[in-house]
């Protein structure tokens, strides 16, 4: 079990130089084990800096990150050990593949953990299973398609069996089919292991449909933190920050402008459809939607 607690986190890039820039400031939150969290924010909002603090890739300029009550930046050992607990998949992770075979590449992380050969083998096969690349283990990563490479790279992190899995734009640049596969893989990992999952994404529809909690970053601060129904009940606030809203929300906003009454927050396709069908039934009964 891993509970992550972030206290007053601040990060400054290139301190004491003309290029000094505060990327995040005063970020505090608790991530209990097992949540599915979506992280939103436009480019430069600080969300990428934030996630790199969760496994001590970056050192805080102020504040602390705790895992089960222990400061993850306590010393060199704790900074290394947190990498096994919090797995981080970067954007375009396929660019990190380097081994001759898919098998060896997935084994890189577990190998660094100092596990036995049998244990590594078990983890590689398990991770490959999660993302559906068992049949490719002996192939060279260079021979694979873009979507396959992406899944192999994700398996390389999953193989460390992280209790917290963080993914930065895992579906960027993939076609709808590829996106769907990756999201299914992530869901399967979470369902089987009970891990906490954080997904940074520009894809509002996926975030809205998958996450039970959303974090919205803007100008280096955590400005919204709550369940999707709460976040998407204020769509204008999101568009004001230059963010998209889920497409069902956009349609609902347009319908409301047309004078239609729809219940509370609408952010998934199913909600919108249900709301409209209810409105249709009401219209049939002669109540009239307007």
């Amino acid at each position: 079990m891993a509970e992550i607690k972030v206290e007053q986190l601040r990060h400054v890039y290139s301190p004491q130089t003309p290029f000094e820039r505060t990327a995040i400031e005063a970020v505090s939150l608790i991530l209990p084990q097992g949540q599915f969290v979506g992280v939103l924010g436009h480019t430069g909002s600080g969300k990428s800096t934030f996630i790199q603090h969760l496994n001590a890739l970056l050192l805080p300029s102020g504040g602390r990150v705790l895992c089960d009550g222990e400061d993850i930046n306590r010393d060199k050992v704790s900074r290394r050990d947190i990498k096994w607990k919090v797995g981080l998949v970067f954007q375009y992770p396929e660019y990190q593949l380097f081994e001759e075979t898919v098998y060896k590449d997935i084994a890189f992380g577990p190998g660094n953990m100092g596990l036995s050969k049998e244990e590594i083998d078990e983890r590689v096969r398990e991770a490959a299973g999660f993302v559906g690349v068992e049949a490719l283990l002996d192939r060279s990563p260079l021979e694979l398609s873009g979507g396959q490479k992406r899944r192999v790279a994700i398996a390389g992190v999953i193989a460390m069996r992280p209790e917290v899995l963080v993914l930065d734009e895992p579906t960027a640049g993939l076609d709808p089919e590829g996106c769907g596969q990756i999201l299914d893989n992530i869901r399967a990992y979470k369902a089987r292991t009970g891990a906490t999952v954080l997904v940074v994404s520009h894809d509002m529809d996926a975030s809205a449909a998958l996450a039970e909690r959303l974090l919205v970053f803007n100008e280096g601060r955590l400005v919204m933190d709550g369940p999707p129904e709460e976040i998407f009940s204020q769509p204008e606030r999101l568009t004001g920050m230059g963010l998209d809203v889920p497409r069902p929300t956009a349609i609902a906003m347009a319908l409301r402008r047309q004078g239609l009454r729809l219940p509370g927050a609408v952010y998934t396709h199913a909600q919108l459809k249900a709301g409209l069908l209810a409105a249709a039934r009401e219209a049939e009964r002669g109540a009239g939607p307007c």
């Binding site: 890739l57 290394r80 096994w84 660019y95 890189f108 992380g109 992190v157």
Partner: peptide, 16 residues
């Protein structure tokens, strides 16, 4: 930039 990114990605997999 790319080197920085790859280094971070490998460090996240425990590279030392």
């Amino acid at each position: 930039e790319e080197t920085d990114r790859i280094m971070s990605a490998q460090r996240a997999r425990g590279a030392d």
